[in-house]
Simulated assay, not measured.
Amino acid sequence: MSSSVRAVATRGMRPLRVGATPVPHAEILDFVREPLADCGIDLQIEIFESFEEPNELLAAGRLHANFFQYLPFLDDFNRRTGNALVPVVPVHIEPFGLYSATIADLEAIPEFAEVALPSDPVNVDRSLVMLDELGLISCPRRGLATVTDIAANPRRLIFKEFASWTLGGVREDFDVVFLFGNQAMEWGVDTGTALHCDRANAAYAEYLVARPDNADGFVVRALAEALNCESTRDFIDATYAGQVLAAF
Protein backbone atom coordinates (compact mmCIF):
# COMPACT_ATOMS: atom_id res chain seq x y z
CA MET A 1 0.00 0.00 0.00
CA SER A 2 1.40 3.38 -1.00
CA SER A 3 0.16 5.89 1.53
CA SER A 4 1.11 8.29 4.27
CA VAL A 5 -0.86 9.67 7.18
CA ARG A 6 -1.33 13.27 8.26
CA ALA A 7 -2.55 13.28 11.84
CA VAL A 8 -2.27 15.31 15.00
CA ALA A 9 -1.70 13.42 18.26
CA THR A 10 -4.74 14.00 20.44
CA ARG A 11 -6.40 12.42 23.44
CA GLY A 12 -10.07 12.21 24.24
CA MET A 13 -11.12 13.03 20.67
CA ARG A 14 -13.11 10.93 18.22
CA PRO A 15 -10.90 9.68 15.37
CA LEU A 16 -11.96 10.23 11.77
CA ARG A 17 -9.70 8.42 9.32
CA VAL A 18 -10.13 9.61 5.72
CA GLY A 19 -8.35 8.34 2.60
CA ALA A 20 -7.49 10.97 0.00
CA THR A 21 -5.27 11.74 -2.96
CA PRO A 22 -2.69 14.48 -2.35
CA VAL A 23 -3.84 17.50 -4.40
CA PRO A 24 -6.28 19.07 -3.87
CA HIS A 25 -8.17 16.54 -1.73
CA ALA A 26 -5.74 16.23 1.19
CA GLU A 27 -5.13 19.98 1.10
CA ILE A 28 -8.85 20.71 1.39
CA LEU A 29 -9.13 18.20 4.23
CA ASP A 30 -6.21 19.88 5.98
CA PHE A 31 -8.10 23.16 5.78
CA VAL A 32 -11.07 21.78 7.75
CA ARG A 33 -8.96 20.03 10.40
CA GLU A 34 -9.23 22.88 12.95
CA PRO A 35 -13.03 23.30 12.90
CA LEU A 36 -13.38 19.53 13.26
CA ALA A 37 -11.01 19.58 16.26
CA ASP A 38 -13.27 22.21 17.80
CA CYS A 39 -16.05 19.61 17.54
CA GLY A 40 -13.91 16.98 19.29
CA ILE A 41 -12.92 15.16 16.09
CA ASP A 42 -9.35 14.09 15.32
CA LEU A 43 -9.10 14.15 11.50
CA GLN A 44 -6.48 11.66 10.28
CA ILE A 45 -5.75 11.95 6.57
CA GLU A 46 -4.29 8.89 4.87
CA ILE A 47 -2.81 9.86 1.52
CA PHE A 48 -2.89 7.50 -1.48
CA GLU A 49 -1.42 7.68 -4.96
CA SER A 50 -3.64 4.91 -6.35
CA PHE A 51 -7.39 5.06 -7.02
CA GLU A 52 -8.33 1.55 -5.84
CA GLU A 53 -6.99 1.34 -2.29
CA PRO A 54 -9.11 4.12 -0.75
CA ASN A 55 -12.33 2.34 -1.73
CA GLU A 56 -11.07 -1.11 -0.78
CA LEU A 57 -9.95 0.06 2.66
CA LEU A 58 -13.17 1.99 3.23
CA ALA A 59 -15.24 -1.08 2.35
CA ALA A 60 -13.07 -3.17 4.72
CA GLY A 61 -13.71 -0.75 7.59
CA ARG A 62 -10.13 0.50 7.84
CA LEU A 63 -11.18 4.03 6.83
CA HIS A 64 -14.21 5.98 7.97
CA ALA A 65 -14.51 7.82 4.64
CA ASN A 66 -12.59 8.76 1.52
CA PHE A 67 -12.36 11.77 -0.73
CA PHE A 68 -10.88 11.31 -4.20
CA GLN A 69 -13.54 10.24 -6.72
CA TYR A 70 -16.55 11.20 -8.75
CA LEU A 71 -19.83 9.29 -8.98
CA PRO A 72 -19.19 7.33 -12.22
CA PHE A 73 -16.00 5.89 -10.66
CA LEU A 74 -17.79 5.08 -7.39
CA ASP A 75 -20.70 3.46 -9.22
CA ASP A 76 -18.30 1.30 -11.23
CA PHE A 77 -16.44 0.20 -8.09
CA ASN A 78 -19.69 -0.78 -6.37
CA ARG A 79 -20.87 -2.66 -9.46
CA ARG A 80 -17.61 -4.58 -9.89
CA THR A 81 -17.10 -5.46 -6.24
CA GLY A 82 -20.63 -5.83 -4.88
CA ASN A 83 -20.05 -3.07 -2.33
CA ALA A 84 -22.47 -0.27 -1.56
CA LEU A 85 -20.29 2.71 -0.69
CA VAL A 86 -22.36 5.89 -0.66
CA PRO A 87 -21.70 9.49 -1.74
CA VAL A 88 -22.16 11.96 1.10
CA VAL A 89 -21.61 15.44 -0.39
CA PRO A 90 -19.94 16.85 -3.53
CA VAL A 91 -16.97 19.08 -2.77
CA HIS A 92 -15.17 20.26 -5.90
CA ILE A 93 -14.81 19.82 -9.66
CA GLU A 94 -11.46 19.34 -11.40
CA PRO A 95 -10.71 19.78 -15.10
CA PHE A 96 -9.88 16.74 -17.22
CA GLY A 97 -7.73 17.57 -20.18
CA LEU A 98 -5.71 16.53 -23.17
CA TYR A 99 -2.09 17.76 -23.04
CA SER A 100 1.00 17.67 -25.22
CA ALA A 101 4.58 18.77 -24.69
CA THR A 102 5.21 19.02 -28.45
CA ILE A 103 1.90 19.69 -30.23
CA ALA A 104 0.40 23.17 -30.26
CA ASP A 105 -3.26 22.45 -30.99
CA LEU A 106 -5.71 19.70 -31.87
CA GLU A 107 -5.39 20.24 -35.61
CA ALA A 108 -1.65 19.56 -35.38
CA ILE A 109 -2.09 16.05 -33.94
CA PRO A 110 -0.45 13.90 -36.65
CA GLU A 111 -1.20 10.46 -37.99
CA PHE A 112 0.02 7.68 -35.72
CA ALA A 113 0.26 10.02 -32.74
CA GLU A 114 0.70 8.07 -29.52
CA VAL A 115 -1.97 8.83 -26.94
CA ALA A 116 -1.68 7.91 -23.24
CA LEU A 117 -4.99 7.49 -21.45
CA PRO A 118 -6.11 6.18 -18.05
CA SER A 119 -6.71 2.44 -17.87
CA ASP A 120 -9.68 2.19 -15.49
CA PRO A 121 -12.98 1.58 -17.32
CA VAL A 122 -14.73 4.81 -16.33
CA ASN A 123 -11.86 7.04 -17.41
CA VAL A 124 -11.13 5.12 -20.60
CA ASP A 125 -14.76 5.86 -21.48
CA ARG A 126 -14.41 9.51 -20.49
CA SER A 127 -11.28 9.86 -22.63
CA LEU A 128 -12.81 8.21 -25.67
CA VAL A 129 -16.00 10.26 -25.39
CA MET A 130 -13.87 13.43 -25.39
CA LEU A 131 -11.94 12.31 -28.47
CA ASP A 132 -15.21 11.42 -30.19
CA GLU A 133 -16.73 14.83 -29.39
CA LEU A 134 -13.59 16.50 -30.76
CA GLY A 135 -13.94 14.56 -34.02
CA LEU A 136 -10.63 12.73 -33.63
CA ILE A 137 -12.29 9.31 -33.52
CA SER A 138 -15.75 7.84 -33.84
CA CYS A 139 -16.74 5.70 -30.88
CA PRO A 140 -20.39 4.68 -30.45
CA ARG A 141 -21.39 4.25 -26.78
CA ARG A 142 -22.96 1.05 -25.53
CA GLY A 143 -22.15 1.31 -21.85
CA LEU A 144 -18.55 2.09 -20.96
CA ALA A 145 -16.53 2.38 -24.16
CA THR A 146 -13.15 0.70 -24.66
CA VAL A 147 -10.58 1.18 -27.40
CA THR A 148 -12.00 -1.90 -29.14
CA ASP A 149 -15.25 0.05 -29.63
CA ILE A 150 -13.58 2.69 -31.80
CA ALA A 151 -15.38 2.57 -35.15
CA ALA A 152 -13.28 5.12 -37.01
CA ASN A 153 -9.77 6.40 -36.33
CA PRO A 154 -8.89 8.60 -39.33
CA ARG A 155 -5.55 9.74 -37.89
CA ARG A 156 -4.69 6.18 -36.88
CA LEU A 157 -3.97 7.24 -33.34
CA ILE A 158 -2.14 4.69 -31.21
CA PHE A 159 -3.54 4.23 -27.71
CA LYS A 160 -1.66 3.12 -24.62
CA GLU A 161 -3.40 2.72 -21.26
CA PHE A 162 -1.71 3.50 -17.95
CA ALA A 163 -2.79 3.32 -14.32
CA SER A 164 -4.46 6.69 -13.82
CA TRP A 165 -2.08 7.96 -11.14
CA THR A 166 1.00 7.39 -13.35
CA LEU A 167 -0.06 9.54 -16.31
CA GLY A 168 1.80 12.63 -15.14
CA GLY A 169 5.07 10.73 -15.34
CA VAL A 170 4.73 9.80 -19.02
CA ARG A 171 3.94 13.26 -20.40
CA GLU A 172 7.27 13.56 -22.20
CA ASP A 173 7.06 10.06 -23.69
CA PHE A 174 3.81 10.45 -25.65
CA ASP A 175 2.48 12.87 -28.23
CA VAL A 176 -0.73 13.39 -26.29
CA VAL A 177 -1.57 12.56 -22.66
CA PHE A 178 -4.79 12.77 -20.68
CA LEU A 179 -4.36 14.33 -17.24
CA PHE A 180 -6.72 14.82 -14.34
CA GLY A 181 -6.73 18.25 -12.76
CA ASN A 182 -5.06 17.05 -9.57
CA GLN A 183 -2.26 15.43 -11.57
CA ALA A 184 -1.71 18.57 -13.61
CA MET A 185 -1.36 20.59 -10.42
CA GLU A 186 0.97 18.04 -8.81
CA TRP A 187 3.24 18.15 -11.88
CA GLY A 188 3.10 21.93 -12.21
CA VAL A 189 1.14 21.83 -15.47
CA ASP A 190 -1.16 24.82 -16.06
CA THR A 191 -4.56 23.49 -17.15
CA GLY A 192 -4.78 26.53 -19.42
CA THR A 193 -2.17 24.88 -21.65
CA ALA A 194 -4.39 21.87 -22.42
CA LEU A 195 -5.21 21.14 -26.06
CA HIS A 196 -8.74 20.65 -24.77
CA CYS A 197 -10.15 20.69 -21.24
CA ASP A 198 -13.47 19.62 -19.73
CA ARG A 199 -14.18 22.12 -16.94
CA ALA A 200 -16.98 22.62 -14.43
CA ASN A 201 -18.72 19.40 -15.45
CA ALA A 202 -21.00 18.63 -12.49
CA ALA A 203 -21.22 14.97 -13.55
CA TYR A 204 -17.60 14.68 -12.40
CA ALA A 205 -17.82 16.47 -9.06
CA GLU A 206 -15.52 14.88 -6.47
CA TYR A 207 -17.40 13.44 -3.48
CA LEU A 208 -16.83 12.63 0.15
CA VAL A 209 -17.74 8.92 0.31
CA ALA A 210 -18.59 6.68 3.27
CA ARG A 211 -20.26 3.36 4.04
CA PRO A 212 -24.00 2.85 4.58
CA ASP A 213 -23.38 2.10 8.25
CA ASN A 214 -21.56 5.37 9.01
CA ALA A 215 -22.58 7.89 6.34
CA ASP A 216 -25.12 9.50 8.68
CA GLY A 217 -22.95 9.24 11.78
CA PHE A 218 -21.75 12.27 13.71
CA VAL A 219 -18.11 12.37 12.55
CA VAL A 220 -18.85 11.89 8.84
CA ARG A 221 -21.70 14.41 8.87
CA ALA A 222 -19.48 16.91 10.68
CA LEU A 223 -16.83 16.49 7.98
CA ALA A 224 -19.46 16.87 5.25
CA GLU A 225 -20.68 20.12 6.78
CA ALA A 226 -17.13 21.45 7.12
CA LEU A 227 -16.32 20.59 3.50
CA ASN A 228 -19.48 22.30 2.27
CA CYS A 229 -19.24 25.50 4.29
CA GLU A 230 -18.62 28.98 2.92
CA SER A 231 -15.09 29.20 4.30
CA THR A 232 -14.13 26.03 2.40
CA ARG A 233 -15.58 27.51 -0.79
CA ASP A 234 -13.47 30.63 -0.22
CA PHE A 235 -10.38 28.47 0.39
CA ILE A 236 -10.91 26.56 -2.86
CA ASP A 237 -11.46 29.77 -4.83
CA ALA A 238 -8.40 31.49 -3.39
CA THR A 239 -6.02 28.53 -3.39
CA TYR A 240 -6.68 27.08 -6.83
CA ALA A 241 -7.53 30.25 -8.76
CA GLY A 242 -10.17 28.65 -10.96
CA GLN A 243 -8.33 25.41 -11.69
CA VAL A 244 -10.54 23.72 -9.08
CA LEU A 245 -14.15 24.85 -8.60
CA ALA A 246 -16.42 24.33 -5.60
CA ALA A 247 -19.26 21.90 -6.36
CA PHE A 248 -21.67 23.11 -3.68
Rank of each mutant, 00 (worst) to 15 (best):
F174T: 00
A84Q: 14
R80Q: 13
S100F: 07
I158V: 13
R155H: 06
L74C: 02
N182W: 12
F162R: 06
P118M: 06
T191V: 15
V124W: 05
F77Y: 15
A101M: 13
L131H: 02
F112N: 15
G135M: 12
D190V: 02
I103H: 03
V170A: 06
I150M: 10
R155G: 04
C139S: 08
R156G: 10
V176K: 06
C139P: 00
G169S: 13
V122R: 03
D105A: 14
L117I: 14
V88W: 01
I150T: 04
G135D: 11
E114K: 14
P90G: 08
R80W: 04
L117G: 05
I137Q: 04
V88G: 05
A113N: 07
I150C: 09
G97V: 00
G188K: 01
L144Q: 14
V176Y: 12
G135T: 11
V115N: 01
F77T: 07
Y99E: 08
N123R: 13
G143E: 04
V122Y: 04
P95G: 15
D149L: 05
E133K: 15
F77Q: 07
V189Y: 00
E111F: 10
F162D: 06
G82H: 01
F112A: 15
L98E: 03
A104N: 06
I137W: 03
R155V: 07
R142D: 14
A108D: 14
F178I: 05
L98D: 01
A113K: 05
V91D: 05
H92G: 01
V147G: 09
A84V: 12
V170I: 12
V89W: 03
G188P: 00
T148P: 00
P110V: 07
L134T: 06
P87I: 02
V147C: 13
A101T: 11
F159A: 07
M130S: 09
D105E: 12
A151F: 04
P72E: 04
R155E: 10
L131M: 12
V88L: 06
E161T: 15
P95M: 01
D105Y: 00
Q69R: 15
M130R: 11
N153A: 12
N182L: 09
E186D: 11
I137G: 02
D105K: 08
V177W: 09
G97T: 01
D173C: 11
D120W: 07
V88R: 04
L131F: 07
